[in-house]
Design a protein around this nucleic acid. Structure first.
Length: 577
RNA sequence: CGGGAUGUGGCUCAGCUUGGUAGAGCGCAGCGUUCGGGACGCUGAGGCCGGAGGUUCGAAUCCUCUCAUCCCGACCA
């Protein structure tokens, strides 16, 4: 491809709207343009990259035995009412009516549609298992779209759905998808981790997320430095360390703590350690007041609390609610004589006998509170956030807490949808059974963003070769000389004959402009044809990732380019392909 | 939905406090010089200053409303 014939508008300056590096680079490198908040057009260069990601995903899905379909984006409300999600899904589901006044929505995901499809066709165990997938534009009316392609409203996603006759089959499907995902992200050339995840409101028994490691990631994950353990922070279990206190707690004693409400203030005021203070957090869970207790130096993990309560909705109590439930302003809540539906405590809280707690009275706390004696605790469960100081729950070694970007998610759904929507089959005995489902998503467009968050430098993008829009950028300098232009065209053709995708920068621009643009677009291999080099019979080669420069002899180009390219793949930690 | 900010040529922004003929740099078009890391000179095109209402002799500038975008938070298969 010749740049002069291509549509590749690069930007010299940072677009004001782009905050994160991937968004900036996608804009500057002429890959995407915004239409409106969270909705983007893919320009030719961006589309090439997107297509490459999609192709790898497609190849591995096919290899795993999944079959591609293409489902509608507009979906009838009836299906969603049937699954029960019309009420549950919330504002993220963009609803509208057609001209007949029928309720519709734009598909944020396709469980309903696929289940509807399957239940119409699958009658017998002989037809199972089935695994269907699609690569589609999804729409989610995000509260706050941000970071360009990272969290858009319209985005491109691969979603696969598996249908099995029993749990063993479903587990096998799950494993097969898990392995396909491992191959996909490896092939994409990204540094990633598969982590255990919370299965969330979509339900189901277990799930893994695939996280691309990047400092700018929105999620934190817990990774063991020794064993294979890796989990989303919202799922990672906090190990209880140490032994329970011996002996009795002295009688409870009120203390005045005027204007002192944070744990740090109370600790300093009373001269005790934060870990001796009990943090009492009030929540509204599906409309009922509940309290959660964690040690003063710990953070509560709301997902864990939500799961313990089996709640659909969990919100931190407002100051008004706190006042109403405790009779005190925020900062003085405690478990003694607290009138809420239930008080749950973190397991670690069970170790201590003698606590400082809020008195449920303004400007007052209680000393020497023994929860077994002075409060009614519903249970001691894992509620707190894991920290980098915690040991691995699997092997006890040290944990790391890197940031990640979720690019894939595999779920075992079980019978959630087959039950509500009646997807059944007849087994060998002619008995009706529910189909066991799994669902497996990959954020195709998000991968582009995640890739750049992980791979860039001050000069621009660094695309891993497998998803780079072109593999080689051939930079022609001194492009006014007809014979040099001709030579560049010949080179372009020779390289393409070797199977490389080549972008020839034949624009009438100064060298500096071309170098800058080449670095910006991040095409992994740069070849420079200049007058001086041409006279000596050499091409200058630059590895975009390492910056390493070398020279290739024009009369032995075919061999030397291959060797050079293998070196680039090696620098990316990729097998030669 | 709460908090904060911003809307001025294609892009990045100044001008607004203290109302008085719409600016710069980049980009774009033409000419010339230049040509290995975002060149230079000259000439030129391009703007209902987000929109509506108001105050005023006069509004990009002041007031009210509205829309849009961005950031923080809640939310997120």
């Amino acid at each position: 491809m010749r740049w002069s014939q291509y549509y590749l508008p690069t930007l010299k300056e940072h677009p004001a709207e782009a905050e994160v590096v991937s968004h900036r680079l996608l804009m500057r490198a002429g890959m995407i343009r915004k239409l409106t908040s969270g909705i983007y057009t893919y320009l030719p260069l961006g589309l090439r990259c997107l297509d490459k990601v999609a192709r790898i995903v497609r190849e591995e899905m096919n290899r795993a035995g999944a079959l591609e379909v293409f489902m509608p984006m507009v979906q009838p409300a009836d299906l969603w009412k049937e699954s029960g999600r019309w009420e549950v899904y919330g504002k993220e589901l963009l609803r509208f009516q057609d001209r007949h006044g029928r309720d519709c929505c734009l598909g944020p995901t396709h469980e309903e549609v696929i289940t509807d499809l399957i239940r119409g066709e699958i009658r017998s165990y002989r037809q199972l298992p089935v695994n269907l997938y699609q690569i589609q534009t999804k729409y989610r009316d995000e509260i706050r779209p941000r970071f360009g392609l990272m969290r858009g409203r319209e985005f491109i996603m691969k979603d696969a759905y598996s249908f099995d006759r029993d749990d063993a089959g479903a587990d096998k499907s799950y494993r097969s998808m898990y392995e396909a995902y491992m191959r996909i992200f490896t092939r994409l050339g990204m540094v990633f981790r598969a982590v255990e995840a919370d299965s969330g409101p979509i339900g189901g028994s277990f799930s893994h997320e695939f996280m691309v490691l990047a400092n700018t990631g929105e999620d934190t994950i817990a990774v063991c430095t020794a064993c294979e353990f890796a989990a989303n922070l919202e799922k990672a279990e906090a190990v209880v360390q140490g032994h329970g206190d011996e002996g009795d707690c002295p009688p409870t004693e009120p203390v005045a703590t005027p204007g002192i409400h944070t744990v740090e203030e109370v600790a300093a005021f009373l001269g005790v350690a934060p870990k001796a203070i009990l943090k009492t957090l009030l929540y509204e869970a599906d409309g009922r007041p509940v309290a959660a207790l964690v040690r003063g130096d710990r953070e509560l993990n709301e997902i864990k609390l939500k799961n313990v309560l089996n709640a659909n909705e969990l919100n931190l109590a407002t100051p008004e609610q706190v006042q109403a439930w405790t009779g005190a302003p925020v900062g003085f809540a405690g478990p003694v004589d607290l009138h809420v539906d239930a008080i749950w405590a973190d397991r670690e809280v069970g170790l201590r006998r003698d606590w400082v707690v809020g008195a449920n009275k303004a400007d007052a706390h209680l000393r020497h509170v023994d929860l077994t004696r002075d409060a009614a605790i519903a249970g001691y469960v894992d509620l707190r956030q894991v920290t980098a100081q915690d040991p691995c729950p699997r092997c006890g070694a040290a944990l790391e807490l890197p940031k990640g970007i979720e690019v894939g998610h595999v779920f075992k759904l079980g019978t959630k949808y087959s039950e509500t929507m009646g997807a059944r089959y007849l087994d060998e005995n002619g008995k009706e059974q529910l189909i066991i489902m799994g669902c497996y998503g990959i954020g195709v467009s998000r991968i582009m963003a995640a890739c750049l968050e992980q791979n860039h430098d001050d000069n621009g993008a660094l695309f891993p070769p497998p998803i780079a829009p072109f593999q080689i950028q051939l930079i022609l300098l001194g492009g006014k000389k007809p014979e040099l232009v001709q030579q560049a065209m010949d080179l372009h053709d020779r390289l393409e004959a070797l199977g490389f995708e080549v972008l020839l920068d034949d624009r009438d621009e100064r060298p500096g402009v071309k170098f800058k643009d080449a670095d910006l677009t991040g095409i992994p291999g740069q070849l420079i044809l200049g007058e001086k080099g041409a006279a000596r019979g050499v091409l200058e080669a630059k590895n975009r990732k390492t910056g390493e420069r070398s020279e290739l002899a024009l009369d032995d180009l075919e061999n030397q380019v291959q060797t050079w390219w293998k070196g680039i793949l090696k620098d990316w930690g990729l097998p030669k392909s």
